[in-house]
Amino acid sequence: MKKTNDTTIHKTGLGARASRRLSNTVIYIILILITCIWLFPFFGIVLESFRVETTQQVPYLFPKEFGLDNYIRLFKETDFLKWFGNTAVMGIATAVLQTVFILSMSYVLSRLRFKGRKGLMNFMLILGMFPGFLTLILIYKVFSELGLTNEMAPVGLIIVYCASSGMGYYVSKGFFDTIPKSLDEAARVDGATRWQVFYKVIMPLSKPIIIYTVLMGFMAPWGDFMMANYIAHQTSDGMNVAVGMFEWLSRTNLNTHYTMFCAAGVIVAIPVVTVFLFLQKYYVEGVTGGAVKG
């Protein structure tokens, strides 16, 4: 049966279904190739983290001996757990505070009309164009006087991350703008206060954008290096993962810590990836939802 089928297709040339299948196959092959290239570094890091025959960099990919030595060393011999804890605390605190600030700001700018609103928005737009590290030295000096550097760096950094976060209102304001104002008005007519409107009407409708904001807040401390490095000022107890791990790439440590660095990289990826996987569908909705009307 099959054979005859095949031959008939060959005889009559490619049918519509077959040609679609062919183009799909080609597209899938290309996509798979791109995925492979894109995933390769991650795959490499995972493999490196299980390599135990040497701690140096090697010219081959697959470890000759697999083992958990790097992970064991990571938790037993280094301050990694401390850094990880610092970063997680900063991530959670930033996620909560930043979300509150951003949502309040966006709601106000989207719904309320007050004197100087336009001017304020323009001012924040311009202010936001200056990179944050311009204020690095000043912030350090102030924090140093307040005792928020060194061991206390995580607290200082939470303040840094959250302080100006209200200026990042654009995406969520865009989203709020798409929710019909008539809903607000209806609720107001029924006697709801501004807060009740925000809390009971707008919030349930904006899950995607809330989750997007939470995610962005949670992610920020994991990748921050410049600010975190300066504020922690070489005190191990106050470092985040990026700053702590960077030490392992120095001239004296690279050849003895390289595989451990990879192991730490894998561990750091876990919370971020988990959170992402769970909230992924909202994330996409959040980004595009806010983009409909800017």
């Binding site: 140096q56 960099q57 090697v58 001239r251 004296t252 050849n255 003895t256």
Partner: peptide
Amino acid sequence: DIFTDAGVIITGIWNAEAAEEH
């Protein structure tokens, strides 16, 4: 700073152990 494929490497005492291993 790394030893990959090194036939000759000009470096210092901080890499002594790594060199012996490589």
